[in-house]
Write a protein that binds this DNA or RNA. Structure first.
Lengths: 167, 167
DNA sequence: CTAAAGTTTCAAAAATAATTGAAAGTTTAT
DNA sequence: ATAAACTTTCAATTATTTTTGAAACTTTAG
C-alpha cells in the first residue's frame, strides 16, 4: 500500500467509525486528517483533501475546537488561519471524556435523579421503576467518577491504569 | 411528578441519549422501557407505549437481542412472545463493551495495523503518518485490553474498579 | 477609508437513516 | 392439513441530519 492510499483509508475509516459513535462523518474525517498531518493545514487544504464545501469545513472545525481537540494556528507572514489537532493521545482521551461527561453524562444524571425521586407512588410498577432508575443513577454516577479519577492522571493514565488493573 | 410522567421522561431521555451515541432512538427507547418494566412486555405493549409500528418494533427488538441485552420470554399458556431487558447493570455494561469491541474496535485495529505498516516511504510526511497511526494502534489496543480485563470480573466490576483506582 | 483576503452563517438542497404497513413467512392448536 | 395467531421482511415513504453555496460579516494592508 502506498502512502496516499493509506492516508485515505485511515481518514475514511475514522469517518465511518465516527458515525457509529454519534460524531458526524466530516468532523471525524477532518480530525483524522489533522492527526496525521505533520504540518498545520489551512481551510483550503482541508476542503481540497476531503472534497467538502467551505461552509462544511468551517462548521466542523468550529465543532472540533469546541471539543478542545483542534487548535487554530497562525503562521508568520500568512494571513490565513491554520489548524492542528491535539496529537497527544492521552490528552485527546482526557479532553473527549471530559466533554462527554459535561455534555451528556451530567445532564443524564440530573434526569435520573429527578425521575427516581417521584413520591407517593406505591404500586408495584412504580416501586420497580424507582428502584431501577435509582440503581442506574448510582451506577452512572460511579462510572463518571471513576472516569474523572482516571483521567486526572493526565499523562500516561492508560499506562498507569494497565499497571493497576493487571496486578 | 407523577409515575407515568416520570416513566415517559425517562424513556424519552434515554432515546435522545442513544442518538448521541450512535444508537437509534427507538432502539434506545425500547430498551429503556423494558428496563423499568417490572413485567415482560409483548410486542403489542411496546408498540402502544411508544406509538411505533409493528415492523419498527420487530426490527429494533431483534437489534437489541443481537446485542444480547434483551431476551425473549414465553409465558405459560400464552401464544405471544414477551420481552425483558437485562436489568443487571454490571452484566449490561459488560455485554455492551464486549459487543462494541467486537463490532468496532477490533475492525478499527485491523485497519490501523494495515495503514501503519506501509513501507518504502521515506518522506517526512509518511514518517509522521506511520508514527502517528502506530501510536494510535497501540493506544487503542491497550485500551481494548484494559476494557477486557475490567469486564472479566463480570460481577461488580465497577465497584472493584472504584476500589483499585481510589487507593 | 477601501478593497482584498479571509471566515462565518444559514436557508435551501441533498444525502442518509428510520419508519411504516402490508405481504410473506412461521408456528401452533385442533 | 388448515386456519388462526403471531412475527418478520422489505420496498416505499417520511423524518432527520448533513452539506452546500452565496451573502453577510470581519480583519488587515495599503
Amino acid at each position: 500500500m502506498e502512502f496516499n492510499e493509506a492516508k485515505n483509508k485511515f481518514v475514511q475509516t475514522w469517518g465511518a467509525l465516527g458515525s457509529q459513535w454519534g460524531i458526524n462523518k466530516t468532523m471525524a474525517q477532518i480530525h483524522a486528517l489533522l492527526m496525521v498531518s505533520a504540518e498545520p493545514l489551512s481551510m483550503e487544504d482541508i476542503m481540497e483533501a476531503l472534497h467538502i464545501s467551505r461552509g462544511n469545513a468551517s462548521m466542523n472545525l468550529r465543532g472540533l475546537m469546541d471539543w478542545g481537540i483542534v487548535y487554530k494556528e497562525y503562521k508568520a507572514g500568512e494571513r490565513k488561519e491554520f489548524f492542528t489537532a491535539e496529537k497527544d493521545l492521552d490528552e485527546l482521551a482526557v479532553k473527549i471524556s471530559q466533554e462527554r461527561s459535561k455534555r451528556e453524562i451530567k445532564p443524564a444524571l440530573k434526569i435520573l435523579k429527578e425521575v427516581s425521586s417521584i413520591e407517593g407512588n406505591n404500586s408495584a410498577e412504580a416501586k420497580h421503576f424507582i428502584e431501577q432508575t435509582t440503581k442506574l443513577h448510582d451506577f452512572v454516577l460511579k462510572a463518571d467518577n471513576v472516569l474523572d479519577k482516571i483521567t486526572e492522571y493526565k499523562d500516561n493514565w492508560l499506562t498507569k491504569l494497565v499497571i493497576k488493573i493487571m496486578k
